[in-house]
Design a protein around this nucleic acid. Structure first.
Lengths: 327, 327
DNA sequence: CTTCATTTTGAGAGCGCTTTCAATTAGCGG
DNA sequence: CCGCTAATTGAAAGCGCTCTCAAAATGAAG
């Protein structure tokens, strides 16, 4: 089973290499019978064109990168990323793209990796998961001209392609849900430093306002998406006697749950709880958690699809928002 | 900032392209001053050789694949994989390799992906995470001749490079620890269908035997690494009145914990618990979990290093075992 | 049966780098 | 200084595929 080349196929089919190439790439203007003959030989021999040679000649690799900045263990441990990757992988498979992964651990790492990413030109494009530090390198991609899409709303640059879910609406729904349950002291364990968290908080605020409740700053605190931070933050909030909490991530919600329990209070009797993500952890919580569903996997799929379009031709900046639902 | 090529650098340095190539690849036999001059220009211009052209010419891409079979959400949600990936990524970064990810969702997917993986020859080698179904495609890699290393002990093929941690010892330590605590009815929530689980169970058995305890089949049951399965399985085991349990994964241990609580029993007073993995979830459990530490990240690092060696020259089959420790 | 516009093909020039192979230069002993 | 081996370089042939350009084949029109 030695390596076959275009020339081999060409010879077998009695045509020129160019013709075989055309057949493979589905060009028009090929006599049907020739196309068929070539096609037959290709399938019979199981020939696959060498992607590297192809890349060199066409200046396109079929490889896209997924850049995850800020990936200390804590962040990566949240099921959010695996789920996202799942979606991305699924989409790349379907589009016959190869996915390659870039986890930026340290800041050094970040700089070096991105530099090489850009300079080698191996990738056709990248998907970047937004992050508080996103602004430090997004401009580099823009300058360079490498197509990319952001997952998550960027802080500043409005004119770039990104895809996000409706965090504002999610926050709003969560808060509203709690309010409609008759709760008056609705707290929030948010997350600052990233737009997703900001938006969820904004949504929460708007809901309170729309329902005539006054914000109590003692009921608004932020964690960092870890279970531990949820626990810590909730402990503080408990002093302010909330009767409901909206937690901006299921993982944190688990911590929150523990804090509440330790305080001898019950969920949802004493304090009602709504999480965000709808990932497995939520379901497996002791009293199944009410949570705002976020279509993470779809987020990944769409990111790939968008990127694919960007690479192919040229689409204008697309701004997408996907709707969450209460469970 | 247009694309530079070897020729450009060569011209700037007043030497031939071949010489520049030699400098870049660190060949001997180059006059020091020439080497220096070329080097200077390279750093000044920030030139990076085009990896694709390089691959085509040298028949080596610098890309390695990570194949994760059986990646339905459940499996991928366990922090085990993210952690492993973290380690792998770190190592590939250091060795300037590019990592690309292949998640095999369905069986179709699996077949198709592997076929293309092998036929395109894009990858220099692959890391495969072992799995009950591993045997279905490992042979394909062997036949093909693509270098690969397995993470986890293979079921049959002894003559392939793999890297695993000492699951047997881990199981042994866990059981022994519980026995030394004075427990007599030590149960195990294991996992079947994969060698890691098998080995942990074997270790557990040996420990019981060595300490003169008789196995009670009602105390030996298997889950599938999910929290839910831990919960379900533990419920059954409870009927057999255990006074200790060794759970083969922290994630399952969380489920087990819940089952115990719901039965109105306390940990560790009524039932002592030891987990396996030492991943964040364990620490965040209500009473911090005692767990067998498994060096997952190192597993990834070593896998990459081994693969790198395999690709470079040729090492005989290496069989590695890394030691776990009780926490 | 020509003629001219098309449709189909093939030849061949790269893509940017690695790697012989041979030519050029240096280093040394005599 | 000359001859000879060893250290340095450069020229050029690919790697396997894409794509332009022009030639060859086909067909409609006259």
């Amino acid at each position: 089973m030695k390596k076959l080349t275009l020339d081999n196929i060409a010879e077998l089919a009695g045509v020129s290499r160019a013709t075989v190439s055309r057949v493979i790439n589905g060009y028009p203007h090929i006599k049907p019978d020739v196309r068929e003959r070539v096609q037959a030989i290709i399938t019979k021999t199981g020939f696959t064109p060498n992607p590297i040679a192809r890349s060199l000649a066409s200046d396109r690799s079929g490889i896209i990168g997924l850049v995850i900045p800020n990936s200390p263990r804590m962040v990566f441990t949240d099921p959010y990323f695996p789920t996202l990757i799942q979606g991305i992988s699924q989409a790349t498979n379907r589009l016959s793209l190869t996915l390659s992964l870039f986890l930026l651990a340290s800041t050094d790492d970040e700089d070096r990796t991105i530099r090489s990413l850009l300079s080698t030109g191996l990738l056709d494009g990248v998907i970047i998961t937004a992050d508080r530090r996103e602004d430090s390198f997004v401009p580099r991609f823009m300058d360079h001209g490498l197509p990319f899409v952001l997952i998550g709303r960027p802080e500043k640059n409005a004119d770039i392609t990104y895809i996000d879910c409706d965090n504002f609406a999610g926050g709003y729904m969560a808060a509203e849900h709690l309010i409609k349950l008759g709760r008056r002291r609705v707290a929030i364990v948010g997350s600052n430093g990233n737009t997703a968290g900001d938006d969820r908080i904004s949504g929460y605020r708007k809901a309170l306002q729309d329902h005539g409740l006054v914000e109590d700053t003692a009921l608004i605190m932020c964690g960092d998406f870890s279970m531990q931070s949820g626990y810590d933050v909730m402990k503080m909030i408990l002093h302010a006697k909330p009767d409901a909490v909206f937690v901006a991530s299921d993982t944190m919600a688990l911590g929150v749950l523990r804090a509440i329990r330790e305080a001898g209070l019950r969920v949802p009797d004493d304090i009602a709880l709504v999480g965000f993500d709808d990932l497995p952890p939520a379901l497996q919580a002791d009293p199944p958690l009410t949570t705002i569903r976020q279509p993470i996997e779809e987020l990944g799929v769409m990111a790939v699809e968008h990127l694919h379009k960007l690479i192919g031709k040229d689409a204008p900046k697309a701004v997408h928002t996907i709707l969450p639902t209460t469970l």
